[in-house]
Design a protein around this nucleic acid. Structure first.
Lengths: 146, 146
DNA sequence: GGAATATGGTTGCGTACTGCAACTGTTGCT
DNA sequence: AGCAACAGTTGCAGTACGCAACCATATTCC
């Protein structure tokens, strides 16, 4: 087995581990943001927060998930008052999803919070490490894209 | 927001995207290895393949998942003949899980396969990129550990 | 040696997530 | 106007998984 093949396998294995372990962190985060926030909705909320107002179909593309699931999760976020629906001026079929003031407030409260034990665990990472890791994740996700 | 905080948020977002998108790749892989292999069992199989014979409880730790779920998935892998149970000489309560010849054969067949479109998508990554990414994922997973 | 406790693993149960498909309402093309 | 394409919603069903109760073997402590 070539070293490249071994590394491909290693990445595969580590990603497999990641997607299981991360669920606990995500659940914890979701609970901190809002006790009734469904864990799996947190990534959508974070994405809306980071990538600005966008359509539901953009979430389907970004997360490669079904329209139905997105619709339900978005409904949950709206019900909790964390995001708001705005009519899309460019297309009356669509609605834009944006963080609500409440959602923004709660998200930033959590990221400043001491209870963010996860960030503490990355304390040994330099800023450059972190930025490089984010870049690579982005490249990897792009490679996963259709 | 500091640049470090922004990068933490970016990592969080990218990981959120990853764990959704990767499921499609995993499902594809699982199907290539064995058409009846449950998608979510593939990561366990890969881990057994890479980390040698180990106990079910080691899988619980590695993936931070429940004993019950592991037990069921392992049963599935055994039923498909991809892994074998061996008595653990050090503890008669435990059983060691190891790749079967059939499992090894199928896994290596897939990794050599032309149908591994995923590896092709990473063709622009240098060997060093890949190794560095694997390392960082490992560090990240370690940070997620209890 | 024997009881109490801890550990590896299995199974039953309930729930959450999500893909699929059918449906509504809007837009754009011809 | 009519039809195809697209944004989003909802019902249905299957899968995956955590929890708790359980059995078997090990270990600890008296």
């Amino acid at each position: 087995m070539t070293s490249r093949a071994a590394d491909l396998f290693r990445v595969e294995d580590e990603v497999g581990v990641l997607i299981r372990r991360i669920k606990h962190v995500i659940a914890e985060r979701a609970c901190e943001v809002h006790p009734e926030l469904h864990p799996m909705s947190y990534p959508l909320l974070a994405h809306i927060g980071r990538c600005g107002p966008l359509r539901a179909v953009a979430l389907c593309d970004a997360f490669a998930m079904d329209k139905g699931g997105v619709s339900r999760q978005v409904q949950g976020l709206v019900d909790l008052g964390l995001i708001e629906r705005q009519p899309d001026p460019e297309d009356r079929r669509a609605t834009l999803l944006a963080m609500s003031p409440e959602g923004t407030r709660r998200m930033s409260a959590v990221s400043r919070s001491r209870s963010d034990r996860f960030a503490e665990r990355l304390i040994s990472w330099t800023d450059a490490d972190l930025a490089a890791f984010a870049d690579q994740l982005g490249r990897y996700n792009a490679a996963l894209g259709d």
